[in-house]
Structures are given as structure tokens and as C-alpha cells.
Amino acid sequence: MFISPMLLETAAAPFSDSRYIYEPKVDGHRLIYTQEGGTVRLYTRHHNDCTRQYPEIATNLFPHDVVLDGEIAVYDPQTGVVDFESVMSRFQARRPDKITQLSAQLPVTFVVFDILRYKGEDLRQLPLMQRKEILAGLSLPNAHFGIVPYVEKAGEALFTQMQARSLEGMVGKRTDSTYVSRRSAAWLKVINWSYADVWLTGYRKAEFGWLASVQAENSAKVRPAGIIEHGASPTHKKAFYGVVKPLITGEDRDFVYVEPRIRARVKMRNWTRAGMLRSPVFTEFIV
């Protein structure tokens, strides 16, 4: 049974409130685990079946039928930090031999933070803390399952710890929240953004997108670093397109390229191993 997941809204800043508990935000991908009649199915938040990608999760059973909500994570053995690119490598694997190989090289952990059904009973109308109590009593099938820890009241202190370890951020959840299959202000995320200054070196011809570049190492030239698709307001876009025409150097089917003369600041999740901005969001022009 697939249950559409409860989604997070965004808090403006870290906060502490006795009505909430606070969890580390896991930098993986959302997973709904369903076990019915001895059959396990794994689904992404968009109802895509990904059962075969994670045999270390799908081939181990709980004593009773259950539906769980959590994140698939791959932990770096050296740092203990979730490696999102490794998560994507596991998710994108399709060939059985590749899945077997990656299961040994990049083992996943299903990090559970909620229980939605148990022993045939729908638990979604129970308050969060009662669901947490039931979840804590589960016997996990193997070491590839874990439960997200949480703290009470001390949201700002937890976020400071996340920043110190360069982790993704935190989630605040109301202790009395029921589980609803939509975005809800009862669950709030605070992202630990990183920031970078970039040159805008082109733009898409069709939908919005600015090409971002950064200074190449040991060179006066710039190199591509990604595409900015979010954050720019209509005013920012108008300002950019109002001055960019004299800077055009060429174009192809999809992009117009410009001299690196316009500078901007972006916030992002982190840098990829290939030196690209991960999920960059425009914040301001640098003048």
C-alpha cells in the first residue's frame, strides 16, 4: 500500500519551541516502505517503485505488516556524513549485476522517522509522539535499518550542531501533528545553506535558467558550475535582461552565452564531487 508522504514547509530560521521535536535532516531520498502479507514494496515520494534497487532493504521482513516513512541514505565510512551522490548512484542503477555490485560497494541505510500502518491498523490520525513510541518499539530486520533520533525544545542548538558538521539541516515537527499526505506547516525544515559568488555566463532560450561559472583553479578563466533555476524575482530578471544584450558572445540551440561581467551570489546545498553547484538558488546581484 503506497501512502503519499507528508511534505515539509520551510521555516525562515532555526527555532526552539516546546511544541516541537527536532530531527537531523537526512540528505538522501524519501522512501515509503510497505510490507503486506510478506511482500515488500519500496516507493519514492512520487509513487515510483524502487524495490529492486535496494535488496538489502527489500529482502528483509518485519514480524508484522507495516508501512514506514523515511529516507534512503549512504554514509561515507570515513566521515559518517550522508553522501547524496552515492545515494543517486544506487537509485539510478537498473541492471541486476550493477545493483549487486553497488550493494556491496555503497550499502544503503533506510533511516525511518515515522510509522503509518502497523499490524493492519492505520496510525496516521495518532499524534506524532504516539507514533514515535510505536516506532521505537519495532524490532528492526537488520543493520540496514535505523531510526532518526530527535531532541525536544532545543532546535537552535541542534541546528548549530548540523552547521558544525556541514550536514543538511534540521526538521521541526509538532508533537501533536497527525500524518497528512500533503505539505503542512506542522513539519518545518531549516536548510544549512552554503553560499558562493558566481559569474552569470549565459541563459536559456526557453524556460528560465542562468548559467553560472566560477574561477577555474590556477587560471584566470572561468569554468561552468551549473544552472540557476530558482530564486530570481521578476525584478531581478528584468534587471538582468536589461543589461545583458551588449555582453552576448554567441549562442546555440538552447543557450545564449555572455561575457562573465555580471556577478551574483547563490545559496546551495553543497558542491558536487565534479565541482558543480548542487541546487543553486539566486539570492542577489553583486555590484
Score class of each variant (00 low, 15 high):
Met1Gln: 13
Met1Leu: 14
Met1Pro: 09
Ile3Pro: 08
Glu9Ser: 14
Thr10Asp: 10
Ala12Leu: 13
Pro14Ala: 09
Phe15Gln: 10
Ser16Phe: 09
Asp17Trp: 12
Tyr20Val: 04
Tyr22Cys: 05
Lys25Glu: 06
Gly28Lys: 06
Arg30Pro: 04
Tyr33Arg: 08
Gln35Met: 01
His46Val: 02
Asp49Ile: 13
Cys50Met: 12
Thr51Gly: 06
Arg52Asn: 11
Glu56Gly: 06
Ala58Glu: 08
Pro63Tyr: 02
His64Leu: 01
Glu71Ala: 06
Ile72Arg: 01
Val74Glu: 01
Phe84Met: 07
Val87His: 02
Phe91Pro: 00
Gln92Ala: 12
Arg95Asn: 07
Arg95Gly: 00
Pro96Gly: 12
Asp97Trp: 06
Asp97Gln: 14
Gln101Cys: 04
Ala104Leu: 13
Leu106Thr: 11
Leu106Gly: 00
Pro107Glu: 00
Val112Met: 10
Val112Arg: 01
Asp114Ser: 13
Asp114Pro: 09
Ile115His: 04
Leu116Gly: 05
Arg117Cys: 15
Leu123Ile: 13
Leu123Asp: 07
Gln125Leu: 14
Leu126Gln: 14
Pro127Lys: 09
Gln130Cys: 05
Glu133Thr: 15
Gly137Ile: 07
Leu138Asp: 03
Leu140Phe: 09
Pro141Gln: 13
Ala143Leu: 11
His144Lys: 03
Pro149Cys: 09
Val151Cys: 13
Val151Lys: 12
Glu152Gln: 13
Lys153Pro: 02
Gly155Glu: 04
Leu158His: 11
Leu158Tyr: 08
Phe159Ile: 14
Gln163Ser: 10
Gln163Ile: 07
Arg165Trp: 04
Val171Arg: 02
Val171Tyr: 01
Thr175Glu: 14
Asp176Phe: 14
Asp176Tyr: 13
Val180Ile: 14
Ser181Cys: 11
Arg183Ile: 05
Ser184Gly: 05
Ala185Leu: 07
Ala186Trp: 06
Lys189Ala: 10
Trp193Cys: 04
Asp197Thr: 14
Val198Cys: 10
Val198Tyr: 09
Leu200Val: 08
Thr201Asp: 01
Ala206Gln: 12
Gly209Arg: 06
Gly209Thr: 10
Trp210Ala: 07
Leu211Arg: 05
Ala212Lys: 00
Ala220Cys: 08
Ala220Arg: 15
Lys221Val: 03
His230Arg: 15
His230Asp: 13
Gly231Lys: 01
His236Pro: 00
Lys237Asn: 01
Lys237Val: 15
Asp252Trp: 06
Asp252Lys: 05
Tyr257Cys: 00
Val258Trp: 03
Val258Ala: 07
Glu259Val: 00
Pro260Gly: 03
Arg261Asp: 06
Ile262Met: 09
Arg263Cys: 09
Ala264Tyr: 01
Arg269Pro: 03
Asn270Lys: 13
Trp271Ile: 00
Thr272Tyr: 06
Ala274Asn: 10
Ser279Trp: 00
Phe282Ser: 03
Ile286Gly: 01
